[in-house]
Simulated assay, not measured.
Amino acid sequence: MAVAGLTLDRAAVAILRRLAESEPMRPGVLAGLLAVEASHVTRQVQQWERAGYGVRAADPHDGRAWSIQLTEAGRAAVERVRDAGRLGMRMALAHWSEDDLRTLAELFHRMVDDFVTRADVPADLGPTA
């Protein structure tokens, strides 16, 4: 976050990034997508709303509800976070050989393919508490 020039915490940035992919969105829907409680999203929204990264807007389909949408400053913040992530990755891999990078890419694609193939298969998570 420091490299991106943001004073937000990691949780607030995760919400910003997810919202940037499909805004505007109701807080409850966003909480479901992030697998967190709605109150968590509301607290984070308040944080970045104060920073000018987003606003609440009335839901056009339900006058009692509201949606969250990013401001131009919010979209710019998301892009700075993405740029910082790309820079970090380039720095981390700068000294890797071409062979190592190729192997990493092959294994990463294999992992993603295996994950996608098994995403719909119920997992045995063991005994529940």
Rank of each mutant, 00 (worst) to 15 (best):
A119W: 00
L125Q: 12
R50S: 15
Q46F: 02
A12D: 11
E98S: 00
Q44M: 12
A58T: 11
L19H: 05
T42D: 03
A4V: 14
V112Y: 03
E72G: 03
D62L: 02
V36F: 11
R82F: 04
D120G: 02
L107D: 12
R18A: 06
P27S: 13
L70Y: 11
M1F: 02
E37G: 05
Q69G: 05
A65Q: 14
V3T: 01
L8I: 15
D59K: 01
D9C: 03
R17A: 09
A35F: 15
R102K: 10
L30S: 06
A119L: 02
D62N: 09
R18V: 01
T117L: 00
M89L: 07
L34R: 08
T42Y: 04
L16F: 12
E21S: 10
R56Q: 05
H95S: 08
D62Q: 13
V41D: 02
M111Y: 06
L104D: 14
M1Q: 08
D62I: 06
A35L: 15
R26P: 10
A123C: 05
A11D: 12
W96E: 15
A11R: 14
V41K: 02
D59V: 02
P27E: 08
R90Q: 05
T7Q: 12
R118V: 06
G32I: 06
I68H: 00
L34T: 05
R56H: 11
D62Y: 03
S39W: 07
R82A: 10
A57H: 05
E106T: 03
G126C: 08
M25G: 07
D120E: 04
D99V: 11
S97Q: 01
R118Y: 04
L30F: 07
A35Q: 15
R82H: 05
A77C: 05
E23T: 13
E106F: 02
A31R: 10
Q46E: 13
D9E: 14
V36P: 07
P27L: 01
E37S: 01
R50E: 15
V36G: 06
H95N: 07
G52E: 06
A119R: 02
R18E: 05
F108A: 07
Q46L: 07
A65F: 14
H95W: 07
H61A: 12
L104H: 11
V29W: 09
M89V: 06
D120V: 04
V112R: 09
A4S: 14
A2N: 15
R50Y: 15
R102L: 03
A84W: 10
P24D: 14
R90H: 10
V55C: 12
D9P: 10
G88W: 11
Q44K: 11
L19Q: 01
G74V: 02
S39E: 11
E49T: 14
D83V: 04
W96P: 07
T103S: 04
L34G: 04
L6N: 10
V116Q: 01
W48S: 02
V81T: 04
D9M: 01
A123M: 00
A105R: 07
T42C: 02
V112D: 12
V29Q: 11
T71S: 14
M25T: 13
